[in-house]
Amino acid sequence: MGRPIAGSLGPVQGLSLAPARPLSPVRRRAPGASVNVVDVGRRFEGATGPVDAIAHVHLSVAPGEFCVIVGPSGCGKTTLLRIVAGLEAATSGRVDVSGDAGRPRNAMVFQGRSVFPWLTVRQNVGYGLKLRGVPRRERERRADALLATVGLARFARSYPHQLSEGMRQRVAIARALAVDPDLLLMDEPFGALDEQTRLLLQEELLRIWENTGTTVLFVTHSIDEAMVLADRIVVMGAQPGTVKAVLPVPFSRPRALTDVRSDAAFAPLFAQIWGMLREEVLASRADIRQVRA
């Protein structure tokens, strides 16, 4: 499983929320959380009447699974992720996240700008731990270990504006991992990156995830990215957002990006997913034409 990771840490003292639990930067003993989304809907009151961003969404994610939601823009995949994160409330249905020792903890990696410009890289990574009352020295030890795993050890004292976009997203990932989440939520984390940086970060994410065993719920509009990363792909349709299909991904683990792309199953799976998404994208285009006419 992956490369061995340097800088493994012993138990954390004074972490009041999880006193008995060891916090290693990457290797965990606890399995990830399981997620159960039951008949969830989210309705907004629009100017022309109520609009359902998502409706009747059912989804279950197994502990330790890497689940990727792929869908056209405006299908409500970000809304669904925010509901699972607890940042937004569903207007119907319910979400159960069962974690380690009944203490579900999720950490989200956001789309675009989310690394605090006013904190150093190290302070950013330690931010979640600070809110949980972890003492400074322990925070810094853990932040430094995580920065080493994402290749940013040299930049601990830098400010985000001194880094590239790809490096900032690495900081965001390290910050989410720092709280040792049972569930890692990722909202198009690589969407704003150039392709080569994106490929590198996908590889890194896979390597880190294969070592942590945390559950990942990952949102993207890229079919390719979904296939490379996922155990299962959830295809969403729009207006209102619903789950159209759930597809298992056959590629073995640990995965190398080049192996996945040269696999015989790659092209047919891509075609299958695109077939489903194409209808959705065309349908939404037709809507736009109607509105304009």
């Binding site: 994160a85 940042l87 950490a107 989200m108 956001f110 675009g112 700008r113 989310s114």
Partner: peptide, 12 residues
């Protein structure tokens, strides 16, 4: 930026 508040809230 609204996302900074979301990050903070997400960490509790």
């Amino acid at each position: 930026d609204r996302s900074y508040r979301d990050v903070a809230r997400n960490f509790g």
